[in-house]
Amino acid sequence: MTPLEFVLYVLLISVAAGVLGSLLGLGGGVIVIPVLTLLFGIDIRYAIGASIVSVIATSSGAAAAYVRDGLTNLRVAMVLELATTSGALTGAYLAGLLSGRWLFIIFGVVLAYSSLMMIRKLKQSEFQQSTKPAPWADYLRLHGSYFDKRTGRETYYRVTSTRIGLAMMYVAGAISGLLGIGSGSLKVPAMDLAMHMPIKVSTATSNFMIGVTAAASASVYYMRGEIDPFIAAPVAVGVLLGALGGSYLLPKLRSSTIRLVFVVVLLWISGQMLWQGIRG
């Protein structure tokens, strides 16, 4: 493989990862890392360095479109970023204490749990308004609405369980700091399942928050010399283009379709993570 061929292959695969990552709110990083290491035999550290940049690309690229479409809940994002950024600081500190094997196993278990929760929710096919009292969300004025392109109506929703959401986001931020990924797979369930936000709003808001967390990790990787421009360039550009394409598809898709794809991808990734941890 010549360097030119390498760049073109990585670009094509990154476009596919970007579309998928954008639709699922995953950030693309968890898809790009296995592809780069298993298919191209790239050193895991360089794969993570390229991935973390692509995570920012996905987040910023798709978030720009989601925010314009009014799908993102900016107030929820700002509040929850308190937890994701402090979590990321904790995670970066803990990364020096825990062994990599345990991190993979913990992550695999967390992801499997999240996806099983998603399957349980598949039975209630569409979004249901929560009626639980929500004093924190009332005080912070977190409730919102979005225009559902499929039904053609403005859909209102109440945000609940802000404190549980904050706790889950702290964990998501810590995982992000530990593994150098966006951890959208933890952020979406926190909003969708715990805070009762519609899946489309959860996905859009997750995408919006991922960039901030990833930016902190990326600067560390850059300083360590782990962002190789030759790998990161096609990954960042490819994932970016894929993410923009995905963000145009998202508002047109049925919520239950997104959720089903989400479950399958989550289970597959959690299996990969567990295997990586057990194998050592």
Binding site: V53, I56, S60, A215, A218, Y222, A232
Partner: peptide
Amino acid sequence: VTLGLLVLIATPV
């Protein structure tokens, strides 16, 4: 290329 990557990292900040 590296300058472009750094612009990307600075965008969320």
